[in-house]
């Protein structure tokens, strides 16, 4: 259950793993299931397009407090507002942090390190095994290690977000399941969630779902336009 995760959820992952799409869908699910106040911070200082701040209105419509750049959605400035501190201190909030990709993206956490209480923080790593830099057990583990080194945090959960955009099939998720289970065994980090866009993976069956680890997060596209 998304409500069982730690109060602060940091969503990280390799560049282009689908972190933002996952983070927004996760937020939507949490907003439906949780009675607490929720804050969502776009701390992506890497990407210039496809950042969660572009769907600010949709996130706010979920009743979520949106924290993003103070200098407009379109600016090429890695500006993060002081407001980002608030939900670390105000523990009445559930806090979701959408990071930029790779070790570079996690550097931003350095600013907040002394406010991050490990006991109340989950550090999730979103993985798409169809990205060339995370297409093997070895590369996923090495990517995990570089995220941990840059952030000073340990990954507490893996997220299977295997996808080929609109070409994703259930078999793709199963292939990723095999690979990530091996990563999980070698690193002792559980696969917390498996996520996919429901309208795309039309060949998903109850039988296949049973073979996928962690809770299944059915997603809808927030970031990808209908023509994309």
């Amino acid at each position: 259950m998304v409500t069982d995760d730690k109060r602060v959820r940091i969503i990280s992952g390799h560049y282009g793993s689908g972190k933002t799409e996952f983070a927004v869908n996760y937020a939507a699910r949490l907003a439906r299931q949780s009675d607490h106040k929720i804050a969502f911070a776009d701390m992506d200082i890497v990407n210039v397009y496809f950042r969660s701040r572009e769907v600010r209105d949709k996130i706010m419509a979920m009743g979520i407090r949106m924290i993003d750049s103070s200098v407009g959605a379109g600016a090429d400035l890695p500006a993060i507002p002081a407001e980002s501190f608030a939900p670390f201190e105000d523990k009445s909030y559930e806090y979701i942090i959408d990071l930029g990709g790779n070790d570079v993206g996690t550097i931003v956490l350095g600013r907040y390190r002394q406010w991050i209480d490990l006991a109340e923080t989950d550090f999730f790593m979103v993985v798409n095994i169809f990205r060339p830099d995370t297409n093997s057990v070895e590369k996923i583990i090495s990517s995990k290690e570089s995220l941990e080194q840059a952030s000073g945090l340990q990954v507490t959960g893996l997220i299977n977000n295997a996808n080929l955009a609109r070409g994703t099939t259930a078999a793709d998720l199963l292939k990723a399941e095999t690979m990530l289970s091996q990563v999980s065994r070698q690193t002792n980090v559980p696969i917390k969630y498996t996520s996919y866009v429901e309208e795309i993976v039309t060949d998903m069956t109850e039988e296949i779902k049973k073979q996928l680890s962690g809770e299944i997060i059915p997603m809808t596209y927030f970031m990808r336009e209908t023509w994309m």
Partner: peptide
């Protein structure tokens, strides 16, 4: 060759 996900 299998498809991979890449940014343009």
């Amino acid at each position: 060759m299998a498809k991979v996900m890449m940014k343009g």
